[in-house]
Design a protein around this nucleic acid. Structure first.
Ligand code: FES
Ligand code: FES
Lengths: 134, 134
DNA sequence: CTAATTGATACTATTTTAGTATCATTTAAA
DNA sequence: TTTAAATGATACTAAAATAGTATCAATTAG
């Protein structure tokens, strides 16, 4: 049961690197060298982050990527959403068929509550908060 | 991001059925008919539950399965563990490499805390609690 | 002009989840 | 005692999600 998949993971690392290393523009080549992430996979990830408005991209020679927002305004949940879709643990497991003859399902309710918790806890974590304590 | 996979789901339904329907022994055939779960898949699931001590099995004609414990003593987390292994959201995503040059990782800590929450919330749900409100 | 870069897109590989098939063994009951 | 209905064990297949690769086109600093 993974809360964070590989692409989200790599995205977090890349963004942390870019946030620390204050050069305005960082290229894939530099990230590959420093973080040892497979090149094409990382490219795909950064392109997605660009499309979703987390990064800005610069084409051509000496191009690369740059954070579009400040580290304290980039939430881990944003990144999870980009790669893993909306943060839902829920998804009406029982298709409303069985687990309640009445029209409410205890298990689903409970999972809904848990989800709220997870979302709100995760919702507090920003890229900046991952860097602070270094 | 699924908190509960299909096999766990089916296990819960089957066990709820067996808990309600107070006949001592329930056969796969009956469950298949009532719950519309694929036969072989359900068999595999019930066999696993038997091995893990949740159910007892009875071989031969008119055999089947029976709850080994009372519904209030069967926790959803037990079932999750049977099919999905230990309840961990954690798994040191960053392999201790990057996200802290100091030797602690904020993200991991946070996820650890969230995990505790999830586990303790889920830990309160029993099969009995799913049936009560009908 | 050209080498270094991103954009777009299609493809492949691996792992996890879901489901099937089959034969052996057990047992209640005709 | 035979037999049909059950589980035990195990190996197999299918589908979906995750992880990663390959390639060519467009852009741009130098
Ligand atoms: S999970 Fe959908 S009705 Fe219970
Ligand atoms: S997740 Fe392992 S060191 Fe941060």
């Amino acid at each position: 049961m993974k809360l964070i998949t590989r692409d989200t993971d790599y995205a977090i690392r890349a963004i942390c690197f870019m946030a620390e290393n204050k050069e305005e523009i960082t290229s894939v080549s530099e990230l590959v060298e420093k973080l040892k992430i497979p090149r094409q996979f990382l490219r795909k990830i950064l392109q997605a982050l660009n499309k979703k408005g987390v990064l800005t991209s610069f084409k051509g020679k000496s191009g690369g990527f740059k954070l579009r927002r400040k580290p304290q305004d980039i939430f881990i949940t944003d990144l999870i959403k980009v790669f893993q879709g909306p943060l839902k643990l829920n998804k009406c497991i029982f298709k409303k068929k069985l687990c309640s003859s009445v029209d409410r399902c205890i298990l689903r309710e409970k999972i809904g509550e848990i989800e709220q918790r997870v979302v709100s806890e995760l919702g507090l974590i920003t890229v900046a908060s991952l860097l602070n304590k270094r």
